[in-house]
Structure formats: C-alpha cells, structure tokens
Design a protein around this nucleic acid. Sequence first.
DNA 1: TTGAAAGCGCTAACAG
DNA 2: CTGTTAGCGCTTTCAA
Lengths: 351, 351
Amino acid sequence: MTHPRATLPQVAERAGVSLASASRALNGTGASKAMVEKVRAAAEELGYHPQAMGRSLRLRRTLQIAFAVADIGNPVYVEMMTAIQAVVAEHGYRLVVATTGDTPESTIELVRSVSAGLVDGLVISPLRVNEALVAELVSSQLPVVVIGRSLEGDHLDSVSTDSAGGIGQAVEHLLALGRHRIGFVNGPVDTTPGEARQRGFDAAVGRFGLARETVDTQIADDFTVASGLAAATTLLRRHGGGDAQLDAIVAANDLLAIGAIRAAREQGLRVPEDLAVTGMDDTEIGRVFLPSLTSVSLRSSERGRRAAEIMLALLEDPGHHPQNVLVEPVLMARESTAASQSADLAQEENA
Amino acid sequence: MTHPRATLPQVAERAGVSLASASRALNGTGASKAMVEKVRAAAEELGYHPQAMGRSLRLRRTLQIAFAVADIGNPVYVEMMTAIQAVVAEHGYRLVVATTGDTPESTIELVRSVSAGLVDGLVISPLRVNEALVAELVSSQLPVVVIGRSLEGDHLDSVSTDSAGGIGQAVEHLLALGRHRIGFVNGPVDTTPGEARQRGFDAAVGRFGLARETVDTQIADDFTVASGLAAATTLLRRHGGGDAQLDAIVAANDLLAIGAIRAAREQGLRVPEDLAVTGMDDTEIGRVFLPSLTSVSLRSSERGRRAAEIMLALLEDPGHHPQNVLVEPVLMARESTAASQSADLAQEENA
DNA sequence: TTGAAAGCGCTAACAG
DNA sequence: CTGTTAGCGCTTTCAA
C-alpha cells in the first residue's frame, strides 16, 4: 500500500536521462521539449513528488515564514495571521503558526528551534520581552519582524502601535460622555501591552486632571475573559454601592472588557446605563457582543500586512535598513458606551 | 553584524577533532568527557547552532507535526490545537498550524506541500472532503489523522463525533422546554459538518414527529457570526409575527448561534423568553456570551487529544492498524434556553 | 541542450 | 573512544 517515496534519481533512471536533466526538466530550467516530456512521464508513473528537505538544503531556503504568538486563542492574533498569510502567499511563501508560550524563556526556545533553518523568516509578537530575548532575536541569523513594540535601538524591524495613546482616547471618550469615576482593568504589567496600556492610563489620569479617588486600577492575571471577569468583580466590589460606585471601566483589551461586562451584570449593573465599558483591539467578538463593545482599534490587519511587507523586503535584501512602522489607533464607539438610555442595536460609528 | 552561520565541520576543525566526533559530542552519543568539553567550547565560541535541515535530511524526520484547518478563526480549532500541542510537545514534537482554505483543491495543495517532507505527520480537520482529497490523504506517504469524519473504509485513522446525534439532543432539549416551532440555521451542506448536522436535524424532525409547518431550515454562507446573523434574519422574517413565529432556533455551531441571537434582538425578540437558541461546539465565547449559550459540546479538546495520541502511535509504528475513535457529544444547558423568565447569570449545568 | 560531479549540513556505519 | 567515509535528495556548476 505504501511505496517508499520515489526520488529524483529514480525518475531520471526511468526516463533514461541524467539526474541533472531530470531536475532541469522538472524545474523548467533549460531542457528540450522532448526531455521535459520524457521526464514528466517517468515522474508521473512513479508518483514522484519532490522532497522539500533536499531541495531546501541545497537552495538554502524553505519558502516558509513563521508567525509566532503567545496565544493564538486571542482573536487579535488570528486577524494578524490572516493578513500576513494573504501577503506572503502572493509571493510564494507559506505561513506556519507556532505558539511561544508566555515567558521570554519559552519564546527564546521557540526562536532558536525555528531559526534552525526550518523557515526563511520570523514574524513575532512576543508578550513578554527581556534582554535575552532581544539578544536572541538580533543575533538570530533569520530575518525577523517584531509586531508590538518598537525595538529601534536594537536594529530590529518592527511595526508597533500607540496603545498608550489608545487608552487615552478611551478615557477621553468616557469623559466626554460625562463619566468620571473610571476603573481600569489591565493585564499583567510585565507584558509589553500591559506596560504600555498602564502607562497610557496613568498619563490620561494626569492629563485630564482626574482626582485620585475617582480612578482605580485592577490587574488581571492575563488577557482572557475569565481573568477580566475576576478582576472586574474585585474592582466593582471595592467601589461597591453609594457615591463611590464606578460609572465606567476601561479594559486593556476586548476579552477583558467582555469579562468586565459579565461582572457588571452579575452585580446587577446595566451596561451602558450604569456602567460604560471600553475594550481595545476591535475584535469581531467585541463587535457582535451584546451590547456591542466600544473599542480602540489597534488595526491588527494593517499591522499584520505591514509586517508581512517588511518581511518580504527583508527576504529580498537582507542588508535592508531596519524599519519601524507605527500604526495609529482609532476609537470605535458602540453600544457599551452609548449615551442614550435605550441603546440602539447595530449602531456604530468611528470617533 | 551578521556572520555566516557556523557549520559542524567548522566546529570540528576549531576543536581539532573529526566531524563525526563533533557530532557525537554534541548529541551525547558516545564521546569522552574531554571530547565533549572541547567540542562544546568550540561550538560556543563560534556561536554554533545545528541546522535542522541537514539533520532532518539525514534523520528522515523533522520532529514537526502539522495541524491543518480551514479556519483558525473558529475557536473550536484553537481548542483542538491547544490539546494536540500539549500531547505532542511531551514527546518532543513541535506543532505547526497551517490553513487549508475551504475548498478540497486548496486543501489538496496544502497536503501536498506539507507532505513534501516538512513535517513527520499531519492532523487535519478538513471542511470539504471529496474523493480526490481522500485519495491524496491515503496515498500521502505521511502519517495522517483526520478529525471530523470517520473515513474507515479508506484506511485512514480518524477521530469523529456524532454531531448529527448532537443536533438531535438540542432538538430534544427544546421540545422538553415546550418549544415546538423550531428553526435550524445550518452552514453549507456540502461541508462535512454541514451535511452531518442537516442529517441530524432532519432525523430529529422525523423521530419526534414534528409537523412540516413547524420546522424550517436556513443555510448560512459559512460558519461565522456574520453569516449566522444574515441567515437567522431571513429565517425569522419568513416566519414573521403571529402564530407562525418560531420559538426556538437550533444553530449548527456557536458562531451561527451568536449571529442568531443578534438577529433576534434586532427584530425585538427576547432570548430566551421569545426565542430559545442553541449552539454547538461549546466554545468559550458561547459560555461568556450574554445570554450564555446552550450548546452541544463536541468535546474538541478530547478530540484533539485523541488525535494526537493516535498520531504518536502512528509515528512509532507506521504499520499500525487504522483506528477510528468516536467521541460522544454532550449538551450543556445555559441561559439561552433557560426555562425561567428571568435567566440567572452564571447558571450552568450538564444535561 | 545534456551529463558528470560536487556539495548543501548533518549522522551513522565501519574500521581502527 | 575516535576518525574516515558514505550518503540523505536535491540543484548547479563545469565540460562536452
């Protein structure tokens, strides 16, 4: 049932030609019509399929690009992946996705194994970055594009976004709506996004001159719905009832925001009437959630697309001068912060 | 800045030993203490990292396994992926994820390219299967495990589930709740899951003796929220107002169900009071949705785990007799079909 | 246009 | 324990 796989020398022999001719015929690199005919036929008969390994070893390229993320379960990464895939596929590259785990150590391990020649390039969006990881990325012989943090000083290509400023936009949006007691549900601050978003919230508090007692931060264990639910519950309880009750929550991403909305409901609060909630990333799940989620778009598709383009440029010219692209965030206002009491469905606008 | 990568012969020369000794020292296959010491040092100095390509070519194994799905955006595949990853990682394999596209042709292309020796095995959950794809899978030299459809006659290992029966469970659940006018929102019936779920719905209609006029099916363009919204809108409009109004919708998966709930809301229907909705796959997003989604669990983690185990067995012994594992579905009742008018939050039970 | 031969980086068989 | 050598499957000089 399972023949051993046919090899090129076998095809050559079958066709009665040399190995070199067989290779040329199959690759269309200078062979006579008759030659191509013969070799094609022999290959067909033997059910020959070229072996990527031998080919790659010789060519020193795999035509594969890796996309590495901590958690493919987060829709934002899926969105990036789809965008990257579309771009690189047009240039004959295949995209493979690998999971980094969420520590710098496990990420380093992944970078190592992947840069052992299995792929031609690496697009990575690391959650936690330390010096060792940066060093690994820089010294890696592989073309690398980082999504999520500008590593300009490190001679690494990157596409980043101003998520700190994005949090500022969310706060500004809430203030404009008359909300003043604002809670912030962030993810771990030792992560790249967590750090930036905390910075953004703290800056907004200062910039808009908010009183200490009217704002509060709660750190979730990670960036998932379950952790958002837990963190928001704690936060709301802490400010339970009376005048101290929060009237808005800014969440560091959409998943946390969804958790926060659930927490609010469980405590009998209506969203947005009693509590306005904002997310970040503008994921599809946020858009279809009930109520639909006001969210700061970090334009993940765009970031993925730009990253892929940089990668292709890098592949063409490895000596390329490092680029650092910045994609600006955009607030998408939806039901979860709607001003009217009876939030209309499917109503959506850019800010 | 970017040295050409060091090779093993270079390390050997630097250490003043033979190529073979260097290899042995680095792989721990019989070398003296002193030898290991010397070679390690030389490798360190040169910043040597083994090249996977050469190694794999020689070893005829890559220690990589591919997981191929049509749409990694569907959480159910993420769940499978996580489960597979966990199992194979324990045995030293890395999991890479590739996207098939949703036609048999694009899937065949993927299978081909992936079975060109880039991975040692393929776990695939194809959306659309035709004879050509089955033939490709069978004739592929690669160990293959199919998730999603029993291909017993085809000598392919598989882990499948009874999604037809699962739809039956959903219908039964609704009938027990006193709902009798049931709409079915399915995905395309030329897909494996679409076909099975349609079969399941039709069988349930027959088994429970439901009248023709009280049931109706609408086919969505694909298995996403957006398509579910569109299909459910059509379905609800068709039975608009009066006695003919549906009181329940069975959706073929959670994403379609979420779309259906949105459609209901947009037409002013309350869920579950006016319209009960069930999903399938028991995804996290369904669990946290408001209202939380009653869903038939197809136990995706379990299916992933079983598939991974079969794969490992196959890798050990390629002559292994093909296995066909069946995982039974389980209904998870939640708010979207709650009997009480005021659906309690966070209330959840198995059926 | 074709063939012979070298070699991509690595491991394993075979001698010593 | 160590070194020499062959070869995984493929592409590409180099000559003819």
